[in-house]
C-alpha cells in the first residue's frame, strides 16, 4: 500500500461525517430464518456481534454464509426473525452507516474516481468535500494513477481494491465483505487484507465471509462457523483453530469432506 500519504492528512481528507455516529453494535439477530418453498436456507436462533476485531463467517459451500451476510446487511428480507442494531430496528441511519463489498465487485460504468465519488454523493457528502476524499482513498488503495481510467478495465485485484476503497470512503461503522479475495493472487490478497486491517484498526467493524483458512487466521477476532444454514459454532478465532468444539468444525479444519 502507498505510504506516501501521511496518516493525519489521510484522516483529514476522509472525514466526511461531521456528527458523532450513533452506535450500531451490538448487532443482534434473533430467530432469523430465510426459507424458500418451506426449506430453510438460514436458520439462526441467536447471533450477537460485538465491536472489535473482524468477525469471520466460515463454513462449507451452501452453508448459508453469504445469505446470512445479506440478511444482516438488509439486502434481503428474512422469512422470520429480527435484526437489531444496538437494540434498535434498522432505519435510514443504520442503512447509511454500513456498506458491503461483494465477491465479484460491481463497478459502475464510470471512471475509477467517479466510482468513489458516486458513493460519497449518495451518502450526501457535499461536492466540494468529495474530491479530496476521493483522492485520499485512491492514494490509499494505490489506484491514484488509474483515477481517470474506466473502472471496468482494471485487473481483478485492482477492481476489488476499488470496491473496498469505495465502500470505506463512506466511513461505514460496519463493513460486510463477501469473500473479497476469492480468486485473487497473493499480492492482491495482501493488498486487500492490508486495507481491511487498516480500516478495522480505525474502528470499522468487519463482518466477513471467507473460505480461506489462512486469511481467517490472519484477520479474524472471532469465527462464526455455519453448517446447513445454522450456526454450529461461534467462538474466538484462536479457540476455533486450536480446539474446535463442533464435529463439523473439526471435520472442516481437518480438510475432511463435510456433507
Amino acid at each position: 500500500m502507498n505510504q506516501l500519504i501521511a496518516d493525519s492528512e489521510f484522516v483529514d481528507a476522509i472525514t466526511v461525517r461531521r456528527t458523532a455516529p450513533d452506535a450500531l453494535l451490538p448487532l443482534v439477530a434473533s430467530n432469523l430464518r430465510f426459507a424458500i418453498n418451506g426449506r430453510a436456507l438460514v436458520d439462526v436462533g441467536e447471533l450477537d456481534i460485538q465491536p472489535g476485531a473482524p468477525s469471520v463467517i466460515m463454513g462449507p459451500n451452501g452453508a448459508g454464509k453469504s445469505l446470512l451476510l445479506r440478511l444482516l446487511h438488509g439486502l434481503i428480507a428474512p422469512t422470520a426473525g429480527t435484526v437489531t442494531w444496538d437494540g434498535k430496528p434498522a432505519n435510514e441511519y443504520v442503512g447509511s452507516a454500513q456498506a458491503m463489498v461483494f465477491q465479484r465487485p460491481v463497478l459502475l460504468r464510470r471512471s475509477v474516481a467517479a466510482n468513489v465519488d458516486y458513493a460519497l454523493k449518495v451518502h450526501g457528502v457535499p461536492r466540494n468535500e468529495r474530491s479530496a476524499c476521493v483522492d485520499a482513498w485512491l492514494e490509499k488503495a494505490d489506484l491514484a494513477a488509474l483515477a481517470r481510467q474506466p473502472a471496468r478495465t482494471l485487473s481483478g485485484g485492482e477492481q476489488q481494491r476499488l470496491a473496498l476503497a469505495r465502500a470505506l470512503a463512506v466511513q461505514p461503522q460496519i463493513l460486510f465483505l463477501d469473500e473479497p479475495t476469492a480468486s485473487l493472487d497473493p499480492v492482491s490478497t495482501q493488498a486487500i487484507e492490508t486495507l481491511i486491517r487498516d480500516a478495522s484498526s480505525r474502528g470499522t467493524k468487519m463482518i466477513m465471509v471467507t473460505h480461506d483458512l489462512g486469511q481467517a487466521k490472519r484477520l479474524a477476532g472471532e469465527i462464526i462457523f455455519m453448517h446447513r444454514g445454522e450456526i454450529a459454532e461461534k467462538t474466538p478465532a484462536a479457540t476455533f483453530f486450536d480446539t474446535p468444539a463442533s464435529e463439523q468444525a473439526k471435520a472442516f479444519l481437518s480438510g475432511g469432506l463435510l456433507i
Binding site: 439486502l75 442503512g95 461483494f102 460491481v106 459502475l108
Partner: peptide
C-alpha cells in the same frame, strides 16, 4: 447487475 450494489449504497 447493479441492483444489490445500489441497494447496499442505500
Amino acid at each position: 447487475e447493479y441492483a444489490e450494489q445500489l441497494r447496499s449504497f442505500g
